[in-house]
Amino acid sequence: MKISFTLNGQAASLDLDPRTTLLDALRENLGLKGSKKGCDHGQCGACTVLVNGRRINACLSLAVTHEGDEITTIEGLAQDEALHPVQQAFLEHDAFQCGYCTPGQICSTVGMLKEAADGWASLVTEDLTADVVLSDEEIRERMSGNLCRCSAYPQILAAIRTAGGVA
C-alpha cells in the first residue's frame, strides 16, 4: 500500500507490503543503511530514529502507520559537511568501538536531550516537580534503551555530557 512521509527533510513515497517495519523500509526500500537492525525486538535500540522529533524503535513500528510523519535518521542529522553537535561529541570522545550501535546511540541522544530540555522526568529524578538536571545517573537511566555490547559506555556518557552542555 502507498505511504508518504518526510525523510530527512525530503519527501518520500513508497508502495509497501503492510508488514514492512519502518526500519526495513528505511534500509531495504530507501537504501538508508545507517539505522541498524540489532535485535529486531525493541530490546537493543540500534534502530532508534526520530519521528516528529521524538525517538522510537523503528523495528517495532509498521511503516504504513507513518503517513505524513517527519522522520529523521542518522543520515539526516548533519548539515552538509557540518556534523550535528552530538555526532561531533561522539567523535571527540571516541564514544564507540565497533560502531554498530552508534547511529542508534546518537539518534537516541538527540531525542533524549530534547526530552530533558522539555522538562521530562526520569525514574532517577528525585523531585518529580523540579527542573531536570542531567547528572551522570540521569543520562545512564535515560539511555538504558541503547545497548553497546563493546561496552563503550564511559565514552558514550562523556560524549553525551559534552553534547548536553553538562561537561
Binding site: 525493541g42 535500540g45 532508534t48 521524538r54 525517538r55 522510537i56 524503535n57 517495532l60 513500528s61 537516541s108 531525542g111 533524549m112 526530552e115 522526568a121 526520569s122 525514574l123 529524578t125 518529580l128 535515560r142 539511555m143 538504558s144 534503551g145 541503547n146
Partner: peptide, 16 residues
Amino acid sequence: LAQAILSGASGQLRNK
C-alpha cells in the same frame, strides 16, 4: 503513576 511508568521499558518504547 509517574514513577511506575518511568520504571517500565525505555525512553523509545514509552514514546510509542
